[in-house]
Design a protein around this nucleic acid. Sequence first.
DNA 1: CGATCGCTTGATTCCGATCAACAGGAGTGG
DNA 2: CCACTCCTGTTGATCGGAATCAAGCGATCG
Lengths: 234, 234
Amino acid sequence: MGAFRQIDISGAARPVPVDTVDAAAAGVATQSPLANAVRLMGAVISYARNEEVYGEDEPAEFVYMVIRGAIRTYKLLADGRRQIAAFRLPGDVFGLEVGESHVFTAEAIADSEVIVAKRSAIMTLAARDGTVARAMWAATARDLVRAQDLLLLLGRKSAQERVATFLLEMADRVADGEMIELPMSRQDIADYLGLTIETVSRTLSQMEHAATIALPTCRRIELRNRALLSRLNS
Amino acid sequence: MGAFRQIDISGAARPVPVDTVDAAAAGVATQSPLANAVRLMGAVISYARNEEVYGEDEPAEFVYMVIRGAIRTYKLLADGRRQIAAFRLPGDVFGLEVGESHVFTAEAIADSEVIVAKRSAIMTLAARDGTVARAMWAATARDLVRAQDLLLLLGRKSAQERVATFLLEMADRVADGEMIELPMSRQDIADYLGLTIETVSRTLSQMEHAATIALPTCRRIELRNRALLSRLNS
DNA sequence: CGATCGCTTGATTCCGATCAACAGGAGTGG
DNA sequence: CCACTCCTGTTGATCGGAATCAAGCGATCG
């Protein structure tokens, strides 16, 4: 069992509300009616690295959309073991709950900008506009599909397979060609994949030796053999 | 890596459509507008033990609600490793997808009765009735919360903790007092908890020796020390 | 330039998987 | 009814992959 790991909150809470912004100008493509609603009714807030966006069991007063940076959502066990359920990247909506409180904690992985909209306003809009209601459902369903893929990974895949799956997922989401710029630390990856930091590091090193990937820096990964990774992904 | 495990389909497909039934009489309590809609618009179909209800990637033509018995939904890896994502028990709605196809396979664990309703009919109703639309969202969100709890279990809990969590979950869902009547086999439990059948069996035996539980038969489990199980549940 | 933090690498341990044998129970057919 | 088989579950012995313990490296920052 892992020992308790202290998670330090280096950045002080420093919300900087701003009026409605042109999020498209901020690099977020127009997507669903939900994303549009959040964009129209929300304000931009900046979060420093490791700053908490909201905590587990807090009332779910707001809905969020990432503009810049990255957010992790996770649960903790009493002794500090952590499971990250999702990484939220620019364009992702998160914190949307059916119930009255959040089911996990959300924290900024890097300095980030997030649009924050009143949940009550979104819900009111959804009651009037069926396309918004449906987009909310679709967003929850998308999270569910992601979670179910992660279940299979955590329950049944080997360390190599987990890392391969992770790399391909990140390639889909943040890659510029074959080059991946990771926003998160090894510890975050480990807590997402249900491994230890050492195992993640070792596995990446092995893949580098096998020329499956290249590691120019520890936050940059170049895929050099996608076919092999896909085979490991099962 | 686990070897390929053959999953035999002993019961032949034998759908027995029936007109709208009084599901309350069948022991299912009235719940959400969604459950009511499925009940009103569906037909009862019987599935034999191990019979497939639907397969992964099949078009999602129907929505289902369990009346009697139990259903497992799962994903497979290419070599046969299996991860069960959920057990569906009487009253549970499943197979509700936002997209056009199912994201995993559903099979009867025991001989079961399921109400089957046309997805298109439910969707049409949801477009007219916001409470149905919201109930569909709520059902998906409930699945998501369950999946996220399972993520923490699969990623970070020990075998003992997994079994303890499972027992408490089943106690909540099917227990008559402290006595649990399991509908599923050890293999199903193992594939739900990300363990092997041997580890599940051993862990249950240990708990019996510690007088935490009693095992009158292998499908019946009596909780004798819920406090201890809760502590293991973290 | 030293300190700190994040990452990598090596040595060893340990939990759960694997391999193997057997027991109990249900169903089948004589 | 019993003998047989099949299936599920239990238990024991051993193995192995990832965790843990430990050391050192390298980049970033004050």
